[in-house]
């Protein structure tokens, strides 16, 4: 399978990427590792007129200890997130989840920023960012802004990024010593989750869901129940409240609701035991 033809430009720095993006028009797309975009292009579900390759903006591949948070550059590959010692110490959920994305070959190419900006409800890293209370830095022609993860995912493969903005940095509040869990239910090792759950329990509690709606989601009813003193089992029973999970070859909505309740209970127990 070959993608439709496109113009290819390689950006040498962030400024050049921004100007290529504003010149390229609405059909221009950024490519980093390409592990979300290229499969769509090969299936001709996406046919951008121009690809702007930001894969060489090495300045955007980093993990920095920012005191009360850890800053992760958008171009940091899943493999580098997985093995980073700072993240393992202060946000172990994120490094663990990065190690669960796809398979080793995918993790050698895919980037955290690409996964977030793609906004796929079936992806693992957006859910981890929601559970951790992350925020995202984006740069556009009018400067830089910070978007909370909870405000970022707007619809199926739609995010709060405007077409001329570039996601540059993921800011993860430190969750040092907090309990955490990631539950990923799939049939084949390398598949997307049929349903997934990311949980953090500590000074801040965050529970989020993979593949339970059109966007990566927080399990708000479960979070509210926990805040109100409910038991883990009571809170888990409310995991799918108000949600409209998708139907596909792997699962019906009813099955997903059941999975979410079971997996949230397991996640709460594992995170609570820490």
């Amino acid at each position: 399978m070959i993608p439709a033809a496109f113009d290819y430009r390689r950006a040498a720095n962030l400024d050049e990427a921004l100007s290529l993006l504003s010149d390229g028009g609405e059909d221009a797309k950024l490519i980093a590792g390409g592990h979300s975009l290229l499969p769509l292009m090969k299936l001709r579900l996406a046919a951008p007129s121009m690809l702007i390759d930001i894969g060489r903006l090495r300045d955007l591949s980093f993990v920095r200890d920012g005191g009360d948070h850890v800053a992760v550059g958008a171009l940091t590959r899943h493999r580098d997130v997985e093995i980073d010692e700072t993240l393992r110490a202060h946000a172990p959920l994120l490094s663990h989840v990065a190690g669960q994305v796809g398979d080793p070959q995918v993790r050698h190419r895919g980037t955290i920023g690409g996964s977030i900006a793609h906004g796929d409800p079936a992806s693992d890293l957006p859910a981890a960012c929601l559970a951790l209370g992350a925020s995202f830095k984006a740069v556009g022609p009018s400067g830089e802004r910070t978007i909370e993860a909870t405000d970022f995912f707007e619809g199926f493969l739609e995010t709060a990024l405007s077409p001329d903005e570039i996601l540059t940095e993921i800011i993860i509040p430190k969750a040092t010593g907090a309990g955490w869990s990631f539950q990923k239910f799939n049939r084949r090792a390398q598949d997307w989750a049929i349903v997934g759950v990311a949980a953090v329990r500590g000074e801040r509690t965050g529970i989020s869901l993979v593949n339970m709606g059109p966007t990566p989601l927080r399990a708000t009813a479960t979070e509210a129940a926990l805040a109100g003193g409910a038991t883990d089992a009571e809170a888990a029973a409310r995991a799918a409240e108000g949600l409209d999970p998708p139907s596909d070859l792997n699962a019906t909505p009813e099955y997903r609701v059941h999975l979410a309740q079971v997996l949230v209970r397991r996640a709460l127990e594992e995170a609570g035991a820490a």
Binding site: Y8, G34, L38, K42, D53, Q105, H108
Partner: peptide, 17 residues
């Protein structure tokens, strides 16, 4: 690619430059 395993059906030749 640079010593690490990659699925070459999911990478453009131009990305490997």
């Amino acid at each position: 690619v640079d010593g690490e395993s990659v699925k070459s059906c999911t990478m453009l030749a131009v990305q490997a430059d």
